[in-house]
Amino acid sequence: MISAIEPGMTVLDIVSTYSATQEVFKRWDDRAGECICCNALFESLDAVAEKYNLDLAALVQELRNAARNSRAST
């Protein structure tokens, strides 16, 4: 279930379950100012959003969309 991507999940949990989400994190790296997967892999999405001053709701939505689209194409 795609809605399983929640703010309390770690970056590692998300990218290991939904590989297509790696591209989303790469797109958000510019906003964060560094590689999120490199520097916040073990942090939760809500901690990442707070640390980098990101829009948590928008990030979660993009991750869910990527996960949904990757499932639809398999």
Rank of each mutant, 00 (worst) to 15 (best):
M1Y: 05
M1N: 09
M1R: 08
M1Q: 08
M1W: 05
I2Y: 07
I2P: 07
S3Y: 13
S3F: 12
S3A: 12
A4Y: 05
A4Q: 13
E6K: 15
P7Y: 05
G8E: 11
G8R: 13
M9A: 13
M9H: 14
T10A: 09
T10M: 08
L12H: 10
L12A: 15
D13M: 12
D13N: 11
D13G: 03
I14Q: 01
I14F: 03
I14T: 02
I14L: 05
V15F: 07
V15S: 03
S16A: 08
S16D: 13
T17P: 00
T17G: 04
T17Y: 00
Y18M: 01
Y18W: 15
Y18C: 05
A20Q: 10
T21A: 02
T21W: 01
T21Y: 02
Q22L: 10
V24G: 01
K26L: 09
K26E: 12
K26T: 11
K26N: 07
R27I: 00
R27D: 12
R27N: 14
W28E: 07
W28D: 01
W28G: 02
W28R: 12
D29M: 05
D29C: 07
D29L: 05
D29E: 11
D29V: 03
D30C: 03
R31C: 04
R31M: 11
A32N: 08
G33Q: 09
G33E: 09
E34K: 08
E34Q: 11
E34C: 10
E34L: 07
C35F: 02
C35L: 03
C35H: 02
C35S: 15
I36V: 12
C38D: 04
C38L: 04
C38Y: 00
N39V: 02
A40R: 10
A40E: 04
L41Q: 03
L41R: 09
L41K: 04
F42Q: 14
F42A: 12
S44V: 07
S44T: 15
S44I: 08
S44A: 14
L45E: 02
D46A: 07
A47G: 07
V48E: 03
A49P: 06
A49Q: 10
E50Q: 13
E50L: 11
K51I: 09
K51W: 04
K51A: 11
K51V: 07
Y52N: 09
Y52W: 09
N53R: 12
N53S: 14
L54A: 06
D55M: 06
D55L: 06
L56R: 11
L56Q: 13
A57M: 09
A58T: 13
A58G: 10
L59G: 04
L59P: 03
V60N: 01
Q61I: 04
Q61M: 09
E62F: 00
E62S: 12
E62I: 00
L63H: 02
R64K: 15
R64G: 05
R64E: 11
N65S: 12
A66N: 00
A67I: 06
A67F: 06
R68K: 14
R68I: 04
R68S: 13
N69K: 11
N69I: 05
N69R: 11
S70I: 00
S70D: 14
S70E: 15
R71Q: 10
R71S: 08
A72Q: 12
S73E: 11
T74R: 09
T74K: 10
